[in-house]
Design a binder for these strands. Structure first.
Ligand SMILES: [Mn+2]
Ligand SMILES: [Mn+2]
Ligand SMILES: [Mn+2]
Ligand SMILES: [Mn+2]
Lengths: 222, 222
DNA sequence: TTAATAAATTAGGTTAATCTAATTTATTTT
DNA sequence: AAAATAAATTAGATTAACCTAATTTATTAA
């Protein structure tokens, strides 16, 4: 099997490929993995030897198909364990990430699939992130940032792009939860502050930074 | 925290201390951990430096109180996860050990305690082994080997001393399950073969080897 | 109680994963 | 296009956890 370290590199490369371009820089990996650049260079060479990535000196890395399979498998584990922790053990959504970082490295496809069944084949984790299926297929979401909506538009809150406990706590405190229907009541021109209306609640004012961290499924206003 | 390797050494030392004497030999550890003796010597020195064991050159090791705490914590994790796998995910008792070997190293006391609650505070794992409580206290069992019972005596089957899938499968096939009441109907003098009666079942013949791997709570015949 | 055997340690390596300091390669800026 | 800056790699070490071969210490047998 692969080491935890390799798995963390694969996951990091995968996420950087998704977020930015196709090719990932040494420095970007060093930053997210919290190691120094020469460590990354070293590791990438070893992983290239195992055909997990294609590495071009001084250019960057990409996952091979094999590497992608492993990365998506880990993400599947991570998100299923997060569902377990929240739905079954009663954790809050801001408490589960670090535990899932450990649990995602348990090596057993069979366990993953049994856990999936036990949880009722959830489609998304507690933060709204989609859970890859057993074949490594991850549904393409068409959610957009709340900050892209215009006055009067509506959406359903389906995910976050900031997963920090601080932000998640802020949402709890503000009564903003996954699944809520949101309508943009006003956008302050000066600083892009949003006034939104949550179903059955009085209007709430959120900063641009917050609006830019919330994913919504836009509801077409007919 | 401690590495998985250290935790496995601690667990191995703990089990050897319980089974045999107070002091554990390098060779015994090498055998159960499947490494070579110089590796053990090396590791024991490092662990002694961390005050997890007391190590006397060429004599052997013992756990310190700190080392014992860690060891029992891991055993608690292991057994709780085994209960989870069997009770919640539907695994059979002969399939869970290797997975629990991985899960036992998840570091979170809080997770362990929440899992314990979720499982309903089980007293024993699927093999009848007692689960230490949150304070590291492990109830002393008074179970004895079935092979120590005499003709006509009775007991309740509460545990096994052989945890191999082969043996556990044999018990399944023979219809012998934890909690069964067992009466010794006959003991063949020649080879110590036992004829036992299981509640509501016809008599079953088991070898001495089997009788010597089953733990029972003896029922005083009034 | 010496000799033979078994157990444990020391000596000297290896590999994965990290580091710092020095150097090379790539990208910007003038 | 040269100079300046930034990014990446090489060189050389370190640490944990292992190994084999050689040596020492302890136990058992003669
Ligand atoms: Mn997470
Ligand atoms: Mn998540
Ligand atoms: Mn087990
Ligand atoms: Mn068990």
């Amino acid at each position: 099997m692969h080491s935890f370290t390799e798995e963390n590199y694969l996951k990091a490369i995968y996420k950087l490929q998704e977020a930015n371009g196709l090719i990932v820089a040494t420095s970007a990996l060093a930053q997210v993995l919290e190691v120094h650049a020469p460590s990354v260079t070293d590791m990438l060479k070893r992983m290239a030897g195992k055909k997990l990535v294609t590495y071009q000196k001084s250019k960057g890395v990409k996952l091979t198909e094999k590497g992608r399979q492993v990365a998506v498998g880990i993400i599947r584990n991570h998100r299923l364990w997060e569902v377990f922790l929240v739905d079954k053990l009663g954790y809050k959504w801001d408490e589960v990430h670090d535990l899932a970082e450990q649990l995602e490295h348990i090596h057993s496809e069979d366990l993953t699939n049994k856990l999936d069944m036990f949880l009722g084949f959830p489609k998304a984790d507690p933060h709204g992130d989609p859970i890859p299926d057993a074949n490594g297929i991850l549904p393409k979401s068409k959610a957009v940032l709340l900050s892209t909506l215009k006055m009067g538009e509506r959406g359903t809150f389906t995910g976050v792009t900031d997963h920090t406990p601080a932000f998640l706590n802020y949402l709890d405190k503000s009564g903003i939860s996954l699944g809520n229907s949101i309508k943009v009541k006003a956008i302050e021109e000066f600083d892009q502050t949003y006034t939104i209306q949550l179903k059955d609640k009085k209007d709430t004012v959120i900063s641009y930074k917050v609006a830019n961290s919330l994913l919504v499924n836009k509801v077409e206003t007919t």
